[in-house]
């Protein structure tokens, strides 16, 4: 039983770690603000949940029930705060006229009205 719990816990932790890594790579590689925020929200939810879930299983395994309760509470809070923060961020960007880089925006004859510098550079490289 304890070996099973241990294996399961490590599986969760590794999955969470992978999601965190993917989020970090996405943050660097994605072309514009919105897709980057999307990538950054991945470790916020799945990554942290995986790691904390694994730690909870470790707690169950060792019988640290107080830690299990506290970790579960942290998961609940992160489930609320992460997506809300991402939502607030993107919505503020949109309401301040920050245009996303869409596929049709990339065509040379249809220049977007407002574009950020990063997206511009990317387009220049594509041509």
């Amino acid at each position: 039983m304890s070996l099973l719990l241990d294996c399961l816990s490590w599986l969760l932790i590794l999955t969470g770690g992978t999601f965190c890594l993917l989020g970090g790579i996405g943050l660097l590689r994605m072309p514009d603000f919105y897709t980057r925020t999307h990538a950054a929200s991945l470790p916020d939810t799945l990554g942290v949940m995986g790691i904390l879930g694994g730690l909870i299983l470790q707690g169950v395994n060792g019988g640290h029930w107080m830690s299990v309760i506290k970790l579960s509470l942290i998961i609940v809070f992160i489930l609320f705060t992460g997506p809300i923060a991402t939502h607030a961020l993107t919505r503020t960007a949109l309401s301040h006229g920050h245009a996303p880089v869409l596929h049709e925006n990339r065509l040379p004859e249809q220049q977007p009205v407002k574009k950020d510098s990063k997206a511009g550079r990317k387009r220049g490289r594509k041509k």
Binding site: F77, F80, T81, A88, R91, T92
Partner: peptide, 19 residues
């Protein structure tokens, strides 16, 4: 004013401030 139009942010904050 733009913050007032944000139901999700406000609801989330309402849930969090008490805890």
């Amino acid at each position: 004013r733009s913050l007032e139009l944000r139901p999700i942010l406000r609801a989330g904050a309402k849930l969090l401030i008490g805890p």
